[in-house]
Design a protein around this nucleic acid. Sequence first.
DNA 1: GTAATTTATGAAGGATCATTCAGCTTTGGA
DNA 2: TCCAAAGCTGAATGATCCTTCATAAATTAC
Lengths: 215, 215
Amino acid sequence: MARTTGEQLKVRKTPHQARAHATVDAIFEATVQVLLSDGLAHLTTTRVAERAGVSVGTMYQYFPQKHSLLFALLQRHMDAISDEVAAACARCHGETIEIISDTLVDAFLDAKTRDVEAARALHVVAVELDTDDLVGEFARRNQATIRELLNSASNASFDDPEAIALTLRATLAGMARAMMRRGTTGPDLNTLRRELQSMCRAYLIARAIFAKVEG
Amino acid sequence: MARTTGEQLKVRKTPHQARAHATVDAIFEATVQVLLSDGLAHLTTTRVAERAGVSVGTMYQYFPQKHSLLFALLQRHMDAISDEVAAACARCHGETIEIISDTLVDAFLDAKTRDVEAARALHVVAVELDTDDLVGEFARRNQATIRELLNSASNASFDDPEAIALTLRATLAGMARAMMRRGTTGPDLNTLRRELQSMCRAYLIARAIFAKVEG
DNA sequence: GTAATTTATGAAGGATCATTCAGCTTTGGA
DNA sequence: TCCAAAGCTGAATGATCCTTCATAAATTAC
């Protein structure tokens, strides 16, 4: 694994002019394309630069090493997913656990499968690079979002929201991965989505402590 | 990703003498050790050979390329897990879905966490190499094991065993991965195991069609 | 005992690729 | 218009490392 200290991963220079921004975007975009067409093992700085239409030197102005580039790309991708999930969760704060469960499943699957190809490519990056911190932070953030959502449920409470949130997150991640790998054979994606909804609902209901009905 | 055709991945020479067997074993063992200490990115043929106490040339007599070695190692590891899960499942064939569910969870987690370090190292290999076929086959095999187990349940049947088996397998894999990454913070492993049991049970019960009680 | 086969050696070849840097071009403000 | 700062270039460097092959040792078969 590539052990790289945090300092080295920072961008060397912050773009100030519009064309610099365009350059950085082009580099990001090119990186994804190279990952998709050639794979991480064949991703070279030269190839990325070529695809981006800039020179290698330019890349090194913004990313002091190859790792920095991949790291930044991964962070961007995970932030986008976390944000999307968090936004959807915010919209169903305080609802019943049934609604919460379904919303969570939908939000997660939608976010993860928005761009399956890119997600696949970035998954490779996440595993191969030394991104335990980054990925761990991503998991923690999603887990916290889920935990808060559970605590907001209107019709039930939970004795160990932390463990339940972790279990849900791991389950969602596992299923998203299975769906990403999946070809056209076997159950279709809608079927799997319904299965996942069924599973999460059943689990939450089993673990919920329902509020007494006042009367 | 490393695109390598099947032919190239086969061993060049099959060991016939006892010392050759010992050599191959030493190479496998050394590979795991190097993966653990240096990571896939720094795994070189020279380093593996050195650790195994043989020369590089010797390695190339059994594995025509670096990839072949990693490929073979991965296959070995996944076969061991599949076998272990299948054996445990065979032992609870025909039981109730409650027993089946708990057994499955235990078997999967035990098999996956038998050697967490090695599993972590090999996971990197699986993702970085072009092992879609291999990993897909592994998933399919485990899924088939689960499907047959479900069909054997004494007290219930299922309308879509394929989809349910897939969902269970993905869930188990997701949770196993979360537990592998996990440090000492957060819920402990026993808690998570119970959560997973709770989830799988609740799901199976929700999706089961229970046999009518004869009277 | 010896020929045939299997196994092991490791220096050298050759290819790839991350990274640098000295100099060039473009931009935006004064 | 002019210039300082920002942006860009890409050949050259140096390091890594996969793979080969001519040779030698060990083992087995007869």
